[in-house]
Design a protein around this nucleic acid. Structure first.
Lengths: 343, 343
DNA sequence: TTGTAGGCGTTATCAA
DNA sequence: TTGATAACGCCTACAA
């Protein structure tokens, strides 16, 4: 089979202990033997067995990432950041698609536990009591990305949804809009739903604008299709807003698509600003003005935080609120300065 | 620390061998002791250590996936399929972003080798001599997805690019188009470049249409930006085609975006058909008619093939040519039946 | 049906 | 600077 440390020891006429020392650069060998051993290693094509190593070290240099639907652009971008930096830090990542039912999530958690991974990253995932227990029992550090747990104190990295939604709405107002609708993904979602709605409302309030609950369209979810339906709903309700704040790029894209079908011009007849700023935002026509989450950076940050935690033996680490920005493209039109410009 | 098999053996008053048998359902224990042991396992919250298990079994129930840029919708969808089915088959997947330089790829290969993974899936990746050697040395099965190696005999799963491109072009012709341009990602790419161009040409040829090399626009790559540039080039060359076959959804989307800027109506002034049929194809306005690759299925198939190979000890397995289809949406217009309809 | 013991490939402790 | 040797947690003959 594969050559083992024993094989190289024998061929190099040294003990396995010596080979191990050289491999791990622990003190206790001469330059001479080092060269000799290295040579043999090359000849044999020896590769250390990380499994055996993991058994004794109780570290696998591997982390698990639980992520809903890898093929979402949002998730994909975050995963990208995680993967890049995890590997850079010497950690491999096992990804687990938690789409659909939470039953699968518990399975994943069990498997990851058995595989003795060193840590876990949870992306856009609500932390249930059961998950939390499972994680506590495996005694490994966790970090949350693009989500947060109010029930359990777990470090997270995300943007301030409330603030970001505020910024988006505020941006619209500063561009002269007074009648602004919002289309939200599930409105009861405690992390991506409620806070964004609140942000939207408080911007309205701050500028002395009236809040009309009728102008908040609750799409069931954050997908393209939901955005299309939301726009239909808007048309059916005969809402006479001049701008929309959509809670995700896909939602916005869906709304735009439907608007196009109905001959509604964007942005001349209707402005729209979205949330996330995935690649989709640039690829849609006209390209979307959007509140940007630094997705890749968030992944990177999470990987780095987790790394620190495993290195230090699970010491707690600060959560990070990533800065959001507005990237201006072409879906928001400045409204002529009629009577009431922003104060 | 974590309870081991020894702990449960002691507490259940049996030997570790018995516990092991029960755990692995190997013959040699009574129902009675089984219940007893299971009970103890529950009480202790015992979880088998897959690392130790992997050491003796020489199987880690883990595979590696080398994939360029997870955040591509194409790659993401394939990964999605792989991950879902790998887990379903009891395999965890370690993903490795091979974006950028091939140097990293060799590193990944080394790490995967050390981790003693059971198999490898290579997505959209050219197999170099060095990769091949590395893989051969680790003595694990491989399967290629969305790529193929002419140099080495490796099982793959992909669509027939030549045929798919033929179908796309043929579709355009059957819709009355005579002057058809093609925008290709790197034209020299032996798998996604050349064959698609050939398919395009042979459709033209079959229908007795003239091939004008000037009508083949070589975008540097397959991205949105490349599509935009390609469209600029088309406009600059004053090409008077009525339809475009774009070698990827992003390319098509980029072209559409640029066309929009120039006031070119799609499909009334210009038809366009794309390749891939990722989610992007539906989200663009108007939604793209596209040649569809069954991305998720391809991932699923690859995972299944690899599983068979690791189960059977690396026996060779047949490659799969997945069926492509054309999904009709709204970017191709039927040209009025002037003089020359398709024969 | 059950238990004992050797081995999987490393790391680490203790002598030498 | 080196080398035995005992873990690490599990599986699997072989015995009982």
């Amino acid at each position: 089979m594969n050559p083992t440390i024993k094989d190289v020891a024998k061929k190099a006429n040294v003990s396995i202990a010596t080979v191990s020392r050289i491999l791990n650069n622990k003190p206790g060998f001469s330059e001479e033997t080092k060269q000799k051993v290295l040579k043999v290693i090359g000849e044999l094509g020896y590769q250390p067995n990380a499994v055996a190593r993991g058994l004794v070290n109780k570290r696998t240099e591997t982390i698990g990432v639980l992520i809903p639907k890898v093929s979402d652009m949002l998730a994909a971008e975050i995963l990208n950041g995680i993967d890049d930096f995890a590997h850079r830090l010497g950690l491999s990542v096992i990804v687990c698609n938690t789409d659909s039912n939470g039953k699968r999530t518990m399975d994943y958690l069990r498997i990851l536990a058995e595989k003795r991974i060193d840590g876990i990253i949870l992306v856009s995932e609500f932390v249930t009591e059961a998950y939390y227990q499972a994680i506590v029992e495996m005694k490994v550090p966790v970090v949350l990305v693009s989500t947060i747990s109010y029930q359990f104190l777990l470090p997270y990295v995300k943007v301030d949804d409330r603030h970001a939604a505020f910024s988006a709405t505020d941006y619209l107002i500063r561009h002269g809009h007074r009648k602004i609708a919002m289309v939200t993904g599930s409105e009861s979602d405690p992390v991506a739903g409620i806070p964004r709605i609140e942000g939207y409302k408080s911007a309205l309030r701050l500028h002395g604008l009236e809040i009309d609950e009728n102008q908040i369209i609750n799409a069931a979810n954050f997908r393209f299709e939901d955005g299309m339906k939301a726009m239909e709903e808007i048309i059916r309700r005969k809402l006479d807003m001049t701008a929309i704040f959509a809670s995700s790029d896909e939602l916005a894209a869906g709304a735009m698509s439907k608007a196009f079908q109905h001959g509604i011009q964007i942005p001349s007849q209707l402005s729209i600003i979205s949330y996330d700023n995935t690649k989709l935002a640039e690829m849609v026509t006209p390209p979307l003005t959007a509140v940007s989450q630094p997705l890749y950076e968030m992944g990177k940050t999470a990987a780095t935080m987790l790394f620190e935690m495993v290195e230090s033996g699970d010491k707690m680490v600060e959560s990070r609120i990533m800065p959001h920005t507005i990237v201006e493209r072409q879906t928001v039109q400045m409204l002529g300065d009629e009577a009431n410009m922003p104060k």
